[in-house]
Computed example of a mutant assay.
Amino acid sequence: MDTTETGLASWYTCETQGPRTASGEVCDPTGLTAAHPNLPFGTMVRVTNRDNGSTVEVRINDRGPFVDGRIIDLIEGAARQIDMIDTGVVPVQVDVIDTVQPPSRS
């Protein structure tokens, strides 16, 4: 992936102490995390709501979204930060801030 991607974002939630994410973490609906189809777990991205200009920084810890045309799926807490709860799906820009480097093999 380039360092910038544009497309649609959706959001999801889970119960407190809910199921585990694809990375193995317990899902936290108030967190600042997101699902992305292929960025490495732990990658930090800035998501900008292109309708209102608000931004949130999130850590990738899950996989998805699994709907054509959507590029990222924010957990509820992150979606609230960029005011997309009521609309459900918004156009966004996703900028990679920090990528995770795999451990070196010695």
Rank of each mutant, 00 (worst) to 15 (best):
E25G: 03
P37F: 12
R50Q: 14
T30V: 05
I82K: 01
S10G: 11
I75D: 04
P40Q: 10
L74Q: 03
I85H: 05
H36P: 00
A22Y: 08
D62T: 02
T13S: 15
G77W: 08
G64P: 00
G24C: 12
E57W: 04
T30K: 14
V94L: 07
G24W: 09
G64S: 02
N49E: 10
T33D: 04
P91Q: 12
R20I: 05
G31L: 04
R70L: 11
T43Q: 05
T3M: 14
L8C: 02
Q101E: 14
E5M: 13
N52R: 11
T87C: 07
D51A: 10
P91M: 10
P37C: 15
I97E: 06
P19F: 11
V90D: 01
I71G: 01
R70H: 10
G64K: 01
M1N: 15
T6E: 15
N49A: 08
Y12K: 07
N38R: 09
P19K: 14
V100M: 11
H36F: 06
E76V: 00
D98S: 13
I60Q: 00
T30C: 01
I60H: 01
M1I: 14
T33L: 10
A79E: 09
L32W: 13
V67H: 11
Q81S: 13
N52F: 10
A22C: 04
T4H: 05
A22E: 02
N52A: 10
A34G: 04
T16L: 12
L8G: 03
P103A: 08
V47M: 09
A79S: 08
N38P: 03
V26T: 15
Q81A: 15
L8F: 12
Q81N: 10
N49G: 06
D98K: 14
P91Y: 12
P29K: 09
A79W: 02
R50S: 15
L39Y: 09
M44W: 09
G31S: 14
T16R: 14
D2S: 11
T99L: 15
C14A: 15
V94G: 01
T87R: 14
R46W: 07
M84A: 08
P102Q: 12
